[in-house]
């Protein structure tokens, strides 16, 4: 059997990797050559965006946020997700061992691909994820052109 030293560290190393990740996060020096459009780690909310055939879908991780308190606006092809997630402390008698969760105001602006129809927007909140679907304008949808034999 061929043994390659780099192929699969023992699980013991995972704790070291996690420690390294946490330190990188602390100083945010993990990526010295970061993309100019990249966001620092820990940005709230984290989002996914996909461009599909007929729509653009966005998922934002907003756990524990009252869906009615989320301010969602679409203007000039820029989607803004704003809101507040304040974690209340339970008075002075409570001592905290860890405070890693985001607390406070948040705002995130995402520039969207061209050719979307601002009238075809749907947003749904479920299990801490906000799902946004923005339909494409009719003229921007891919069209099948049939070739006729002349």
């Amino acid at each position: 059997m061929q043994v390659r030293w780099y192929d699969g560290f023992t699980p013991t190393f995972n704790d070291f990797f996690r420690l390294r990740d946490e330190l990188d996060q602390l100083f945010d020096i993990g990526l010295p050559l970061a993309d100019i459009r990249s966001v620092p780690r820990g940005t709230f909310p984290a989002i996914n965006m996909q461009e599909e055939k007929n729509a653009v879908t966005i998922q934002a991780g907003l756990p524990g946020v009252d869906p009615t308190e989320i301010d969602l606006t679409l203007e000039d092809n820029v989607l803004t997700i704003k809101g507040n997630r304040t974690i209340k402390t339970d008075g002075e008698k409570t001592s905290y061992h860890r405070r890693e969760r985001f607390s406070g105001d948040f705002a995130r602006m995402v520039s969207l691909p061209e050719g979307l129809d601002a009238e075809k927007v749907e947003a749904q909140y479920r299990d801490g994820i906000l799902n946004i679907t923005i339909g494409k304008a009719e003229e921007k949808k891919p069209k099948q052109i049939s070739v006729t034999v002349g």
Binding site: G61, P63, I87, T89, D90, K93, S95, H97, G128
Partner: peptide, 17 residues
């Protein structure tokens, strides 16, 4: 977030999705 008072320990975890 993990907090403790005299009654016990409470843990909150963000698990979106």
């Amino acid at each position: 977030d993990i907090c403790e008072d005299k009654e016990g320990v409470i843990l909150y975890a963000d698990l979106p999705g």
